[in-house]
C-alpha cells in the first residue's frame, strides 16, 4: 500500500534519506526501525507530501498521497502529537479536520469516544497530558476510517498502560486488513508489535524482512555448555569447526554447532555435561550490531560491555 522508490532527501550537504526503496503491505504491522536521526520522520513526511523528495518517489495505494480523492480516508497519520493548536478544544480540532474531507460530524464524537477523550472533548488541548495528546492524535488519524495508518514513535513518553493500548490498537487495525506503518528507535518495542521490519540507518535501507527473518539473519544462536572438563570439550568442539568462547569458569559458549551435535560429541568423548542451553542474542543486540556503523551521534560506550 505504501511504496517508496529511490526516495532521497538532501538538506544542504547532508543526505537525510538516501535512495530508500521499500514497500509496506496491508494486513500487518510494519515496523520502521532506525536509530535517532536515521531519517524515519523525514521519510514519513515525504510519504505525506509535507516534505518534497529531492529525488525518487513514494506512493500510497498506487498514487502520490496529494492526489487522493479524500486524503483522510486514505491515510491517517500521527507524526507529532504536539502538532495541534493548544488553544483549540479537542472537539473543534477534530471537527476542523473532519470538515476538510466532508466527514460526518458524528464521526468526531465517535473517535473521541473510542480513544477515551469524550469527557474532555470541550477542553483546550493545551492542558492535555502527553498520553491524552497522543490519544487525540490517534483520534485524528482514525477520523477518516483510513486504509493506511502511520505512527511516528507513538509510544514515546507513554506510561505502560498507554503503550499497551497503542500496541493492541495497531495490531487490531492490521487485523482488520489495514496497512500499519509505525516507526521506532527501539527494537524491543517492535519485537512485540511488528510482523515486518524496514530498518534504516543514516537514511539507507539496512533490512526489509519479516521479524523472524530478521532474528534468524541477525542474531546468531549460541549454545551454553556447562562442564567440569572445559579444556577437553573445547578441543573436541573446535576440531568439529565450532567457535568456542569461555563463559565464566565453568561454561562455554558455542556457535556453529547444534545442541544435538554438542551433546553427542560430549557423550562420544566421555565428557560430563551439566547444562546444555540455547542462548538467543536479543533483537536489540542484533539491531545495534546492524546499525552501529550508521548511528549518527555516537555516545562513548563504557568499556567491558561487549555484545
Amino acid at each position: 500500500m505504501i511504496e517508496a522508490v529511490g526516495l532521497t532527501k538532501r538538506y544542504g550537504d547532508r543526505l537525510a534519506v538516501d535512495q530508500l526503496s521499500f514497500s509496506v503491505k496491508a494486513g500487518q504491522v510494519t515496523g520502521f526501525l532506525g536509530p535517532n536521526g536515521a531519517g524515519k520522520s523525514t521519510t514519513m513526511r515525504m510519504i505525506l507530501g509535507l516534505d518534497a523528495p529531492t529525488s525518487g518517489r513514494v506512493t500510497v495505494g498506487g498514487k502520490p498521497f496529494a492526489q487522493a480523492a479524500y486524503p483522510m480516508r486514505e491515510v491517517g497519520a500521527l507524526l507529532d502529537a504536539k502538532a495541534v493548536h493548544g488553544g483549540r478544544s479537542a472537539y473543534n480540532h477534530l471537527l476542523c479536520l473532519a470538515q476538510t474531507n466532508n466527514l460526518p460530524t458524528r464521526r468526531v464524537d465517535e473517535v473521541l469516544e473510542l480513544v477515551g477523550l469524550a469527557a474532555v472533548a470541550k477542553k483546550r488541548s493545551k492542558g492535555f497530558s502527553l498520553g491524552m495528546g497522543q490519544r487525540l492524535g490517534i483520534a485524528a488519524a482514525l477520523l477518516g476510517d483510513p486504509q493506511v495508518l502511520m505512527f511516528d514513535e507513538p509510544v514515546n513518553g507513554l506510561d505502560p498502560e498507554g503503550i499497551l493500548w497503542i500496541r493492541n490498537l495497531m495490531k487490531a487495525l492490521a487485523a482488520e486488513g489495514r496497512t500499519v506503518f509505525v516507526s521506532s528507535h527501539l527494537m524491543s518495542e517492535m519485537e512485540n508489535t511488528a510482523d515486518h521490519l524496514v530498518v534504516i540507518g543514516r537514511g539507507r535501507l539496512v533490512a526489509d524482512c519479516s521479524v523472524q527473518e530478521f532474528i534468524d539473519n541477525n542474531s546468531e544462536l549460541s549454545i551454553r555448555v556447562k562442564t567440569p572438563e572445559l579444556t577437553k570439550l573445547n578441543t573436541v568442539l573446535t576440531d568439529k569447526g565450532a567457535i568456542v568462547r569461555a563463559d565464566g569458569d565453568e561454561a562455554l559458549l558455542v556457535t556453529r554447532l547444534g545442541m544435538t551435535e554438542i551433546g553427542d560429541l560430549a557423550f562420544d568423548n566421555g565428557i560430563r555435561v551439566h547444562e546444555l542451553s540455547p542462548i538467543q542474542a536479543s533483537l536489540e543486540q542484533a539491531f545495534m550490531e546492524l546499525t552501529k556503523d550508521s548511528v549518527e551521534y555516537h555516545a562513548a560506550v563504557p568499556a567491558g560491555k561487549g555484545a
Binding site: L48, L50, V75, K82, A83, V84, H85, T100, A140
Partner: peptide
C-alpha cells in the same frame, strides 16, 4: 503563523495535502 508556531500546519496539510 499560528499554524506554524503550533505545528498545526502539518496536521492540516495531512488532512488536505492539496
Amino acid at each position: 503563523t499560528s499554524e506554524y508556531a503550533t505545528g498545526m500546519v502539518r496536521t492540516s496539510l495531512t488532512a488536505q495535502p492539496r
